[in-house]
Amino acid sequence: MLTKRIIPCLDIKDGRTVKGVNFVDLRDAGDPVELAQRYAVEGADELVFLDISATEQKRKTLADLVYNVAEKLNIPFTVGGGISSVEDVDILLQNGADKVSINSSAVKRPELINELVAKFGSQCIVVAIDAKHVDGQWKVHLVGGKVATEIDLFEWAKEAEQRGAGEILFTSMDNDGTKNGFAYEALAKLSALVNIPIIASGGAGNVHHFTETFKIGKADAALAASVFHFKEIEIKGLKEELKSEGIPVRL
């Protein structure tokens, strides 16, 4: 049976791991390669690296980081942050990334999804969506959540699937950083709507939240950052708890 995945997310700025609360207020949380290895040993199923730096050397720094991670890591990892072209993706995959996630660039030019899928295959293209509940509707936000759009989360997710995306990484901005739980209802609706895996993100605070995101939210994977970086939740213990709740996990 396919298991539910636990995915620590490492936010990267200028080659270091950071974690923001509600997308701001960054704190340094360590060396990405070391952290990645620690997570693999502890039982993480996959890792996500989101690059939030905006320097001119960004592309080179990120490619170097990907190479260093791939050399050491024996589980899959996804890289995202500012990826906007076939060339960007090519460099990251060449350096050893397993998947890439695209966000704002896909909203601005949805054909990018088709282009990447045609060249690299669906299996390595993750479409990340940041959304916020505004006047009773889930609206897609861009540029790390800073720019609001009129685009509906569910319509965009459906379109991303039709264009060939292999997975959807949905971050609820309302929940992100709160540690009050994931956006279960929106997740369940998404999961029923599309036939590709959904990664839940935003709001993990305790073990129970993960149980709920799989049981109520019907997510295929759950992503979190600070609860893992600051050792508030230990991955092995989390998975044992999920297993005792009848959720299939790799132990």
Binding site: M1, L2, D45, S122, Q123, G166, N195, P197, D220
Partner: peptide
């Protein structure tokens, strides 16, 4: 078949 999510992504036994 589309009675499962496609692609299959993750760890299976």
């Amino acid at each position: 078949n589309s009675d499962v999510k496609v692609p299959q992504i993750g760890w299976n036994k």
